[in-house]
Design a protein around this nucleic acid. Structure first.
Lengths: 210, 210
DNA sequence: TCATAAAATGACCGGTCGGTCATGTTGATG
DNA sequence: CATCAACATGACCGACCGGTCATTTTATGA
């Protein structure tokens, strides 16, 4: 039939391998975009991203159909990393330490790369939505294990933790020049809030996902 | 000398009272801008705000020298409300209940009006910076009282609480269609994290303000 | 009622940005 | 080396946006 339509390079999944220079540029664009988004938020301009990557503006749109697609690609990469991290930690012997390490490592990534902005609500049914769900489900398992071990209060769900994940990072954002490790302090506060013990009943039922 | 320079209306503090229509428009602009910022973030356009307020674009700039000044005016209004709230609660008999009510009421406002975006780091020395400091100082007093009463762990400062204030609201933002009262749940988690009892030592010294 | 300063208006400007496309360049393949 | 599809380029387009200003409207107070 159709001889493998060239289609859009942006939609070229793993169809045909990229040319060497194209692969290089794609990678350069991803890291440049990540840095630019981190520095200036979603308003970073395509032109600046292209300049930082050392390519022309048109090249950006050869690799990513739209600016949103570029942001999504970055978010997807981080979602995959978080899924892998959670899966790895799920095999750890101490469930409490595992959950704490997950929260710490996740917040640390989000802080360093400043990608919390990109983790907005994705279009339903989109690829990013699927990847977010993967992270979510993995966090649920992690939290379930921790709860079984008595490290997490019984009325806290995995979805709660998933939503609370970015809180320590956002907290620090209200400071003009935050100490680079201050977020760890608020991971501590959060973790203590998740613990059983002095916990008071929570005033609202847990949310569902999505 | 200069016969009371007409100057810019934007800088007209309480110099001379506004004309009736001007006062009306100013108020309409503030509420329209608040709604528009809430719906579309800082990127809401002046044209849309003007349309919603039922005035022409030029009128916006008669009242507020710049778009940023408009956003600042809204943020300032909320800062003043929060200061008043904290001051009032400081006189309450039960310091623990007072702090909880402050966190609840503050988060509720931020959630309803979606003004957390406007509470960004202000220019040093600016009016908004002064108002933020007022809120901060008032929160410190509230937290000190609560700590003295044993309702807050000893290693938590007022600055911590000030920074954590918006966390429950941000947490809910990662949900596509959050239950309108879900933020209360995360106020609960936060408050339990602030309590003494099962608290573990925090991994980073408290920040200073600013 | 009238004079006047205050206020409102909306066309306009310079600039930016996301995205397109005709053209030129280059890496793979035989 | 020759060929060609894949890729890169950057001028260009239309839309939008914040802000200005000459002109017109209007509230106010005498």
């Amino acid at each position: 039939m159709t001889p493998a339509a060239p289609a859009d390079a942006a939609i070229a999944d793993a169809a045909r391998p990229l040319r060497a220079d194209a692969a290089r540029n794609r990678e350069a664009l991803l890291t440049a975009a990540e840095e630019e988004f981190a520095a200036r938020g979603l308003d970073a301009s395509i032109a600046d991203i292209a300049r930082r990557a050392g390519v022309a503006k048109g090249t950006v749109f050869r690799h990513f159909a739209t600016k949103e697609a570029l942001a999504t690609a970055i978010a997807a990469r981080h979602a995959e990393e978080l899924t892998a991290l959670a899966r790895r930690l799920r095999a750890a012997p101490d469930p409490e330490a595992a959950l704490l390490e997950f929260l710490t490592e996740a917040a640390g990534r989000l802080q360093r790369r400043r990608v919390a902005v990109l983790m907005t609500v994705p279009a339903p049914g989109s690829e990013l939505a699927r990847l977010q769900r993967q992270v979510h489900d993995e966090v649920v398992l992690l939290v379930d294990k921790a709860r079984d071990a008595g490290a997490v209060r019984p009325d806290i769900t995995g979805t709660d933790v998933f939503l609370l994940m970015c809180a320590p990072v956002h907290t620090v954002d209200y400071l003009a020049d935050p100490p680079p490790e201050l977020w760890r302090r608020y991971v501590g506060v959060l973790f203590d809030g998740l613990r059983p013990g002095s916990a008071h009943p929570l005033p609202h039922p847990a949310p569902s996902w999505p």
